[in-house]
Amino acid sequence: MGSDRSKLGFYLLLAPLLLWLVTLIILPHIGLFAVSISEKVGVREYETGLGNYAVFFNEPLYWRTFARTAFMSISTTVLTLLLGFPIAYYIAKLTRGRTKTTLFLMCLIPFWVSELVRTFGWMILLRETGVLSNFLQYTGVIGGPVEFLYNDGAIMVGLVYTSILFMIVPLVTTLDSLDDSLIEAGYDLGGSGFSILREIVIPHAMPGIVSGCIVVFMLSLGNYLTPILLGGKDSLWFTGLIYTQFITRFNWELGSAFGFLLLALSSAVVFLGLKLSRQSLSNTMGR
């Protein structure tokens, strides 16, 4: 009797979670998949088949954009890690008390405004008549106005800026938990700064590094605004293609197939990343 009641309680507690999973995640994906395998043959006429996936593989624009998006997202992740690690190390290990809080808050400040405003900020800085170009002309580094916007570099800058906080937070958390005496012991035993970083600090921070990388990679891969606004004529982003298929082409079938391919790509890259770093998802994200 008692065990029946506790079971009921368990299911009642589980119900919201299950409801959330089913209605917000599983059902839409089932729907998306159903749409992705229906091919349009005429007005209000559809057939089941994998034609939409075939379109993806037969059209170089689509799979090249796919590969490009993956490559640039990975590059963004690496760049964010390289930039974020020293910052996180500085915050976690070299500051105390109020300075630490202040620095942490400073990383948060860009997130008080919307992504759109942040991206427009970069446009103001990087455009041909923008702050950076004018400053470089004023200091005589360049002779005439230079366009820094509308290229892949601008996209990277925007993406790194947008996602660096999501790298710093898990890194600070893990680096904070690294006992200073381990670093001192490393020095005491004759280690150089580099070997201590490689053998002690990075192995310790690995769960934070991996979880930061997963989040940053996902954010970059799924970003829509930044690549559209900062990118140039050739700067295609896969989410842009999905948007185009759904909205301007009215081709939900192909858009859904693209959506599934993106899901498969991100899952595959995360899986690969976990395997390479010998971390488990529960170890990195479940902290």
Partner: peptide, 10 residues
């Protein structure tokens, strides 16, 4: 038109 625009884009 979409196919044409894609090719221009690419």
């Amino acid at each position: 038109e979409g196919a044409t625009l894609d090719r221009i884009n690419a």
